[in-house]
């Protein structure tokens, strides 16, 4: 299901699943609300929830349906990660530039994601809250070197000032499209591709089950 969805031939629609990972309070929700609703801390936000949001994009004539899955960031839910991020095409790992710990968490996530999903997933590391630059506790140099070393892109954003968010998602989508296209080419014609993709998914399931030690829904 890497690039499933309707449409045939040239104007095909891509459906991507993107997970949002990061400690609580780093601004995951604000980020995604800013992107999908262009609102921040607004009393008039009408959306009922900000944990599952979708966005339709058109990038160079290619239609993209983006499904953004928020995950619970509290430490106690850390072990549930694999259930959330299986089958995702992209992951956005958010940290707070004023909080060194939150960056350490991101490193843990990256390690886990690479181990479970390999290089099929496009990673974005995001330093949020750059409006609080004066309280910065995470060095720019360090984060960018790290991102490069793990094959991820690094971004600086501010959900409050609406900085860097549009670019982040646009860039991520482009990379996911490239991945999907490379996938298609590698697997030949489109008809057999989806079927094999589904089986591939199941193999990942088994791994995830081992990792999460008896996850409830990972088999089958």
């Amino acid at each position: 299901m890497a690039a499933g969805g309707g449409g045939t031939g040239t104007n095909k629609t891509y459906s991507f699943k993107v997970v949002l990972l990061g400690e609580g309070c780093v601004g995951k929700t604000s980020l995604v609300l800013r992107y999908c609703e262009n609102k921040f801390n607004d009393k008039h936000i009408t959306t009922l929830q900000a944990s599952f949001l979708t966005k339709k994009l058109n990038i160079g004539g290619k239609r993209v349906n983006l499904a953004i899955w928020d995950t619970a960031g509290q430490e106690r839910f850390h072990a549930l990660g694999p259930i959330y991020y299986r089958d995702s095409n992209g992951a956005i790992l958010v940290y707070d530039i004023t909080d060194e710990d939150s960056f350490q968490k991101v490193k843990n996530w990256v390690k886990e994601l690479r181990k479970m999903l390999g290089n099929e997933i496009s990673l974005c590391i995001v330093g949020n809250k750059i409006d609080l630059e004066k309280d910065r506790h995470v060095s720019v140099q360090e984060t960018e070197t790290y991102a490069e070393s793990v094959g991820a892109k690094h971004y600086h954003t501010s959900a409050k000032q609406n900085k860097g968010i549009e670019e982040l998602f646009l860039d991520l989508c482009k990379r996911m499209i490239e991945n999907a296209q490379a996938d298609e080419r590698a697997k030949g014609n489109g008809s057999s591709q989806s079927a094999t993709a589904r089986r591939g998914v199941q193999i990942i399931d088994d791994e995830a089950q081992v990792q999460s030690s008896g996850g409830c829904c990972t088999s089958g």
Binding site: V201, G214, C216
Partner: peptide
Amino acid sequence: MTGEDGYYFTNLCCAMAFIE
């Protein structure tokens, strides 16, 4: 795998894993 229903279902799976 992709829809909103899928998201809630995944959360239910998480809830059960957590309870276990």
